[in-house]
Design a binder for these strands. Structure first.
Lengths: 147, 147
DNA sequence: CCGTATCCATTCCGATACTG
DNA sequence: CAGTATCGGAATGGATACGG
């Protein structure tokens, strides 16, 4: 057992990490978000071992984040596309990128950035309450609810 | 080497994961966000081995996400508090929780939820462009910039 | 109460060889 | 190109014992 499972945790954050917290998983999703679909392209982009990529893709498919679709070029292989559940990881990726971009790069270092296609400006991820007001971590309260 | 390091990656997401992608790290931050500060309280909440907690806290302190402060009860020990850098992981946590809450709980299951203290309603994390318009994953474009 | 040190089983990753 | 199979080394996480 690598670590205790969080599958039964009441905390959605813990369950999320249990599902996509493994090394590579979110990076595969990131690549998929920017259009990568083929096995070899993931491998080239991420430079991870093929067996590991294979395992991760299978797991992502199994938990409904990605799906296999017939290759668009007519070849006999699969392509891997995000499902709706996978696309909705976009805010997670952007939040991670925003934080990393702020704190993990030195001046003068190059970095990748995701931009709004139309305006050419960066995305920002922000927290809102139901009224659309922007909130900070000081405004939070923790409760238990039932679905 | 458990996996390749992303420390030198151009991608902020990869660097973020390199920093806080280990098991437990983000859950420790989550606990800290809701007010946990003491070693034993982290341990009780997370039920992880003490040596692992110790290692993680050290690493979080080393990379500037948490800081040790003298215990508020006058005892000889430390408490662990988030730095600004740590607080700014809040959107990451909320995004993960939002996704997990949407997709990883069955009907009737209890789950934890973070609410806006004043309104008692849930937070939401959303993506905006510079004009404040809400965006989706279809609007993205990838570029390289220099700090 | 707050950790550190040690030990062990697990498993995880990367490399490589191989198949269709 | 798209994987699968196998292997060895490394590192991790949990348990536990110990010490301040």
């Amino acid at each position: 057992m690598r670590h205790k499972s969080f599958k039964a945790s009441l905390c959605p954050v813990a369950r999320s990490l249990d599902t996509i917290g493994e090394w590579w998983s979110l990076l595969i999703v990131r690549d998929a978000l920017v259009g990568i679909r083929r096995f070899s392209d993931f491998q080239k982009s991420l430079r991870l071992a093929k067996n590991v990529l294979s395992t991760r893709l299978k797991k992502l498919v199994a938990c409904g984040i990605m799906q296999q679709v017939p290759a668009s070029d007519g070849s006999a292989y699969w392509e891997y596309a995000l499902t709706q559940k996978g696309w909705e990881l976009f805010p997670v990726i952007v939040a991670l990128g925003q934080w990393g971009g702020s704190y993990l790069f030195s001046r003068g270092e190059k970095r990748l950035l995701v931009l709004d296609k139309r305006t050419g400006k960066p995305f920002r991820v922000q927290l809102h309450n139901a009224k659309g007001e922007i909130l900070t971590a000081n405004d939070l309260e923790l409760v238990t609810v039932t679905n």
